[in-house]
Computed example of a mutant assay.
Amino acid sequence: MHHHSTDEPCFTYFPPAVLRPTELPAYSRGGGARTIPLVTRTAGAEIFLTGQTLFDGGAGIALHTHNCPESVTILEGDAIVEIDGTEHHVTRFDTTYVPAGVPHRFRNASATEPMRILWIYASVDATRTLVETGITARVDAEHDKAARSNG
């Protein structure tokens, strides 16, 4: 294991970036949800992973867990978030914090209005495991795969 002196940063230098969701590709998550990756390895991230998911009216994603903590902030609209079997109504700027391994999902509370979330994973190597199937995939690999199939 590499030892760092106390004044040496524990990450490598990467160029600063301004990421504009309107100029970035959105990848379908199915069921009327689209994800826009923001801070990823591609942008130089080594510590955490961020992005946005946009939900059409009535859209939702399947119950899942992660291998690291996740925080989500509602940027637009109203959502129902299910965390460990309990549903919560959340609205603009409300924020969730879900530990690793805890099943959760978001869905748009409106049948007509869009909803948008900002997500932050505590690891650049975040994975998502679907509760129903037990299938695990890297969060960023989903975007890579989508990029290849859409490109």
Rank of each mutant, 00 (worst) to 15 (best):
G134K: 05
G151A: 13
V39I: 12
L63H: 00
N108D: 01
G101A: 04
T6F: 14
E142G: 14
G60R: 01
E76G: 00
A43V: 09
G134T: 13
T50Q: 13
G85Y: 10
A45H: 08
D140H: 10
M1H: 10
N67G: 09
F14P: 00
A122Q: 14
E46W: 06
T91H: 01
T129E: 13
H88Q: 06
R92K: 10
A26Y: 03
D84C: 02
G85C: 09
A122C: 08
T22K: 12
I135A: 11
R92I: 01
F11E: 12
L63D: 02
D125H: 11
T50F: 01
S123K: 03
P9M: 10
T53N: 08
T65D: 01
T136I: 12
M1T: 14
P25H: 08
T65F: 03
M115E: 00
D78F: 02
A26V: 07
R20I: 14
I117Q: 02
L75V: 07
T22C: 07
D7L: 15
H143Q: 06
T91S: 14
H88D: 00
T65S: 04
I47E: 05
R138H: 13
P21V: 05
I135V: 15
I135H: 11
T95C: 15
H4Y: 11
T12G: 15
A33C: 15
G77W: 01
V139E: 11
K145H: 13
R29A: 05
E82N: 00
V39S: 13
E46N: 10
H66P: 13
I117A: 04
G31E: 11
T12Y: 11
H2R: 15
A59N: 03
S123F: 05
Y27M: 09
G44H: 04
G85I: 15
A33P: 02
D144A: 13
T91K: 02
G134P: 04
D84V: 05
A111Y: 03
P69E: 14
T95I: 05
T22D: 13
L49T: 00
E132S: 12
D140L: 06
G51P: 04
T35G: 08
T65Q: 05
A122V: 10
E132V: 07
E132T: 12
R41H: 09
S149W: 07
T22P: 01
T53L: 09
T50R: 02
L54I: 10
P103E: 04
M1R: 11
V102P: 05
V139F: 04
A100R: 04
A111M: 11
P99L: 07
S5M: 12
S149Q: 12
P15S: 11
V81M: 03
N67A: 11
P21Q: 10
G57Q: 00
K145R: 14
R92F: 01
V124A: 11
G151E: 08
T42C: 00
L54R: 06
